[in-house]
């Protein structure tokens, strides 16, 4: 199963990279962007994430509301609704762990058709997911995160990197995480935008207690239908550290509301 995915994804990646043109592209799907403009600061992002493991399936529907205080600060909330269907147990659904975040732009260097930006991202995740019954809908712990998000975005290519640490209460192990992404457009440029973007991400995390290193390969496609709407879909396949996870599917949209 995993091998088939990789065989299918490789040519897709090559096709995308080979078609790099002088066009603008969108944000990566599985990695944070340092851009706090447009859809990243004045809209809603929502997506469904389906995770298939040997132990059962999980569907999480995420709704994220970013709000720009000014051009350098953004606050927001991420609301997850979770449905779990573990093997041998009844299915359960409801609110997961709610996250609040603050982003602060710490670096910006603009050029013609390009920008290099960095921001600090602070997150606070609350144990709002019910853990009284199995399967639990949250971790039952408070979580704090601090990360650095950087990106070099030109009209032809977007390169993104994110790294940080998540601390968890209740004696749960912390997590170092890192995400790398490249995003390229597949259609000629026009504004208002109408294009298809390909992004390929590597999403990794290391458990600070047992050292388990999870690494996922995450290709995705985006369809930008105009000024205010972006549709996106992607898949994550484990490369290491998650032997029971078969794949993760994501489909969603970002819409401008302000």
């Amino acid at each position: 199963m995993k091998g088939n995915f990789r065989i299918w994804l490789f040519p897709l990646f090559i096709v995308g990279v080979a078609q790099v043109q002088a066009t603008a592209q969108g944000p990566p799907v599985f990695t944070e962007t340092p851009i706090m403009l447009g859809l990243e600061g004045r809209g809603i992002r929502t997506f469904g994430k389906f995770t298939n493991t040997d132990n059962g399936n999980t569907y999480a529907h995420i709704i994220a509301f970013p709000y720009n205080i000014n051009e350098k600060f953004q606050v927001g909330a991420v609301i997850p609704l979770v449905w779990k269907s573990p093997v041998g147990l009844d299915s359960r659904g409801g609110l997961g762990d709610l996250t609040l975040f603050l982003k602060q732009q710490v670096f910006k260097k603009d050029g013609r058709g390009k920008t290099l930006r960095a921001l600090l991202k602070t997150t606070l995740t609350m144990p709002t997911g019910n853990t009284d019954q199995a399967p639990p809908l949250g971790t039952g712990a408070w979580q704090g995160g601090l990360g650095l998000v950087t990106g070099y975005i030109t009209t032809a290519l977007g390169l993104y990197a994110e790294t940080g640490y998540r601390y968890k209460t209740n004696d749960l192990p912390g997590q170092f995480y890192y995400n790398l992404a490249a995003s390229v457009p597949l259609l000629p440029q026009q504004y208002p935008p109408h294009q298809i973007n390909l992004s390929v991400d590597l999403n990794g995390s290391v458990n600070t207690r047992n050292g388990n290193h999870v690494l996922l390969l995450s290709p995705a496609l985006q369809w930008i239908t105009g000024r205010k709407l972006l549709l996106e879909s992607g898949v994550q396949v484990p490369l290491r550290g998650a032997p029971q996870t078969n794949f993760v599917l994501l489909a969603g949209l970002r819409v401008l509301i302000f």
Binding site: A24, Q25, G26, P27, I35, L37, G38, L39, E40, G41, R42, K108, D110, G111, R112, G113, K114, T115, I153, T154, T155, G158, Y191, P192, P193, Q195, I224, R227, K228, L230, L256
Partner: peptide, 16 residues
């Protein structure tokens, strides 16, 4: 107006 940093379509919408 020449504007530096215009590298993505959604950013452009915010400027517009």
């Amino acid at each position: 107006v020449e504007v530096d940093g215009l590298s993505c379509p959604f950013c452009a919408y915010g400027l517009e």
